[in-house]
Amino acid sequence: MTHTREPVPDHGNLLTDHPELYEARFPDPVRLAARWTEDLLRAHGAGPRVLDLGCGTGRDAAWLHRAGRTVTGADTSEPMLTHARTHHPGPHYVHADLRGFDLGENTFDAVVCLDSSLLYCHTNPELDGMLASCRRALRPGGLLVAEMRNGAYFLGRTRLLDAPAWSRFTWRDTTYTAMTTLRVDRAAQLLCRRRVWTADDGSAPVEQHSAWRLLFPQELRYALAAHGFGVLLLHDGPGPRTEPVWREGMPSGGAVADGDRLHVVARLVGAG
């Protein structure tokens, strides 16, 4: 009789705890997110000093560094930071929690927050802490550039919630398979994810749980304004994670925010 092994709960994250796996799962040889970011920074006249919040493996931070920026990459994952310092040198990498950090006052010309990193601010106090920290870190007139899931997309849409999604990739002769289930906690405005990883190397399955805040466009405008930011752009694409994806020469977006990604450029303009 064959017994199915129960997943082993994991308080970490298979990909963020193993940066090589992360880069294998999400290859980005052309650094599309970094190119999109640089296009916006140039279009809105940002100075050279950039803070990349939630920098992960450092791929985008290093590309911005090579483009001539002075970059600080910040993350809470020590494995990610160690990988970044070794494999994507150039930026200054620091351990910092985006929900509240102090990296100096009037230090940066722009803060960049990609890949839904901002949505790890699950509560209003955490979001306020993040935006207050950005305000403190930015020079007058500095930019906040963010890219994330769009909470409004889930109004009346259940496609992503109806059934588990499967994905797999191979790294160093081991194939990893993920079964992902999403649900929405409407009271908390959280998109909750349960993911079970299996590998064909005989290791036990691993179960992981994570969540992202679902922010609505007008809600985000209100929070930004409360901290002294004026919104320059807020739209659903094109961007580095949309389909079709953004390419050089494309317009920087309009007023529509109905797609599954949300793109924001805001300038620090006054007191909150």
Results as ranks from 00 to 15, higher is better:
252 S>Q: 15
229 F>A: 02
234 L>Q: 12
256 V>T: 15
224 L>S: 11
226 A>N: 15
241 R>A: 11
254 G>A: 12
233 L>T: 05
247 R>G: 08
258 D>M: 09
249 G>V: 04
237 G>T: 03
225 A>L: 12
238 P>V: 07
229 F>P: 00
260 D>K: 05
240 P>G: 10
243 E>L: 03
225 A>P: 01
252 S>D: 11
250 M>W: 07
241 R>K: 12
249 G>E: 07
241 R>G: 01
225 A>K: 15
245 V>P: 15
246 W>I: 01
241 R>T: 09
230 G>D: 14
259 G>N: 10
225 A>Q: 12
246 W>Q: 01
228 G>V: 04
252 S>E: 10
242 T>M: 11
243 E>S: 04
226 A>V: 02
232 L>R: 11
225 A>H: 06
255 A>C: 08
236 D>H: 04
243 E>Y: 06
239 G>Q: 00
224 L>E: 00
245 V>S: 08
251 P>S: 06
257 A>Y: 04
243 E>Q: 14
234 L>D: 00
243 E>I: 07
225 A>S: 14
226 A>D: 13
228 G>W: 10
250 M>G: 01
247 R>F: 08
237 G>H: 09
247 R>E: 13
257 A>I: 10
233 L>G: 04
254 G>I: 12
247 R>S: 11
248 E>N: 04
244 P>A: 07
249 G>M: 06
231 V>M: 04
247 R>A: 10
229 F>R: 00
257 A>F: 03
241 R>H: 15
246 W>G: 01
231 V>D: 09
253 G>I: 15
240 P>T: 00
250 M>A: 15
251 P>I: 08
224 L>Y: 00
233 L>K: 12
260 D>H: 14
255 A>V: 15
240 P>A: 02
260 D>P: 12
234 L>M: 05
254 G>W: 07
238 P>N: 06
237 G>Y: 02
243 E>M: 08
251 P>T: 04
248 E>F: 01
228 G>T: 02
243 E>T: 14
233 L>F: 00
251 P>F: 06
247 R>T: 13
254 G>C: 04
246 W>L: 03
255 A>M: 14
232 L>P: 03
228 G>A: 06
230 G>P: 04
247 R>I: 06
260 D>R: 12
246 W>Y: 13
230 G>W: 09
251 P>N: 09
239 G>K: 00
258 D>I: 08
227 H>W: 07
242 T>L: 05
241 R>E: 05
257 A>D: 13
236 D>Q: 09
235 H>E: 03
226 A>L: 14
240 P>R: 03
229 F>T: 02
242 T>E: 03
256 V>M: 10
259 G>Q: 09
242 T>R: 06
256 V>F: 10
246 W>H: 05
226 A>R: 15
248 E>S: 12
238 P>M: 10
252 S>F: 13
252 S>N: 15
247 R>P: 07
244 P>T: 07
239 G>T: 00
235 H>I: 11
234 L>P: 01
242 T>F: 14
259 G>C: 05
243 E>W: 09
248 E>K: 14
